[in-house]
Design a protein around this nucleic acid. Structure first.
Lengths: 104, 104
DNA sequence: TGTGAGGTACGATGCAAGTCGAACCTTGGA
DNA sequence: TCCAAGGTTCGACTTGCATCGTACCTCACA
């Protein structure tokens, strides 16, 4: 799967891709949950309670990591998702807070 | 056309619609130009230099005003577009600054 | 009093994106 | 040892969206 292959450098993260990724309500919910979690918490893809088939769920996480929003580590059996908070805060200050505060 | 009909109340502006609107590069460019303009400047739809047919251009402005990003007043002959900066800053603080600073 | 420019609405079209099921891989635990 | 659960990939389907041309409206102005 992913590994480190599609991990964007911090300065390669593009606003257009980030906004497109966040335009989808499922993906926005994932990010909102991560923002409101304790710092740097690792979560599995299934822990977000998305009511989707697992192939669709996998697709959404691919979009998120290719946009540079999350980091995903392959543990074979499972996959650990972390928010790239430091990179995102540096590049788009305030953006994650907006997502975290949203009540939609 | 629009008039005041599809003018959202400030607290009806939804983050999802705003992000979807801003995901498009043409629309993002319009907002970026408005952010970097002098406060409250009024502009016509053609003044942004979008290289699109006028029907497509009109479509994009419709998306922007239905999302609550711009206010548009019908002057019959022409149409005056203004950024809803106050409403947007109140509801999504920092968002417009991100768009304005973007170099994409 | 036309005529042209700015905008809108509508229908058609083509492509991107969301969705799913099936097949496959990996690993923890029964 | 094998089975179930978490993930990925692929192909197919469907929906949504950006785009355009055409028709129409309104007004400034020649």
């Amino acid at each position: 799967m992913a590994g480190e292959a599609d991990c964007l450098e911090p300065d390669e993260i593009e606003l257009g891709a980030v906004l497109s990724a966040l335009a989808d309500p499922h993906r926005r919910r994932v990010i909102r949950d991560l923002v409101n979690d304790a710092d740097g918490s690792e979560r599995s893809c299934t822990s977000f309670g998305l009511e989707l088939s697992k192939s669709t769920r996998s697709h959404h996480f691919k979009v998120l990591r290719e946009a540079g929003l999350v980091h995903q580590v392959d543990r074979g059996n499972r996959s650990e998702v972390t928010l790239r908070r430091r990179d995102l805060d540096a590049r788009f200050p305030g953006l994650l807070d907006l997502i975290g505060r949203d009540g939609t």
